[in-house]
């Protein structure tokens, strides 16, 4: 457990003062922001006319951007649900007890790299969706005019079911087995169940950019087509 730290400071008034000054600074910032920029208010809601483009609030634009690559039940339901579940599991899956209470990379490489990857993907998707998407959710550079209306691409195709299933099976099986063989210590530290959960969440996370890449590079729309759902 953590041992008593020798250097202790009084909360009053040092910390209280710092907190107070932060609150004051933020109040000033908010007030200035509110005076300078008005919150948006468009015309009254009209179910008959869709805004083009109609964007979700910015913190959900990343998920909306994923709608280009995934069906709604994936982008809007499964992916956020899995993200929340995995976030909640993190402390129970991470067996590395080192690196508490300071910013460190060298002794927590695996955790930090993967977390930062997920975090930056989330931010990147938000930035693309918010700044680079114009009418018809097409890609527009910030300096391009939205006047020229672009069309959605048309020539997408689906992987045949057999290739799709085997591709997914290879991806997940290889992703489960190879790290176990290469990094035996990693496997042993986590134990079977925990190892499976760790690798599953990581494989699921990397599946998102892989699918995006397949779509952008080869126009593949669905990796797996079934009568009930498409991935």
């Amino acid at each position: 457990m953590e041992r008593e730290h020798p250097e202790k400071k009084y909360v009053f008034p040092d910390l209280v003062f710092m907190e107070f000054m932060t609150a004051v600074a933020l109040t000033v910032i908010l007030l200035a922001w509110a005076l300078l920029v008005n919150a948006p208010l468009l015309e009254m809601a009209n179910p008959g006319i869709s805004e083009n483009p109609s964007k979700a609030p910015w913190y959900f634009v990343g998920l909306q951007e994923l709608l280009v690559y995934f069906d709604p039940w994936m982008a809007g339901v499964m992916i956020p649900a899995v993200i929340i579940m995995c976030l909640m599991l993190i402390p129970y899956l991470d067996r590395n007890t080192q690196g508490v209470g300071r910013y460190t990379f060298s002794i927590r490489r695996f955790a930090v790299i993967n977390y930062l990857f997920g975090f930056s993907m989330w931010i990147a998707l938000i930035l693309i969706g918010y700044f680079l998407r114009g009418p018809n959710w097409q890609l527009y550079w910030p300096w391009e005019s939205w006047e020229t209306i672009r069309q959605a691409e048309e020539n997408t195709w689906n992987l045949p079911p057999l290739i799709g299933i085997s591709g997914l099976a290879i991806y997940f099986c290889a992703g489960m087995i190879i790290p176990k063989l290469v990094r035996i210590k990693f496997y042993e530290r986590h134990g079977f169940k925990r190892y499976v959960l760790v690798m599953l969440s990581i494989l699921l996370m990397y599946f998102v950019p892989i699918k995006i890449f397949l779509r952008l590079a080869f126009d593949i729309r669905y990796v797996l087509v079934t009568p009930w759902f498409n991935v």
């Binding site: 993190i90 402390p91 991470d94 007890t97 690196g99 209470g101 930090v112 977390y115």
Partner: peptide, 8 residues
Amino acid sequence: FLTGSYKP
């Protein structure tokens, strides 16, 4: 996360 503050 970066300060490992979620650990036991």
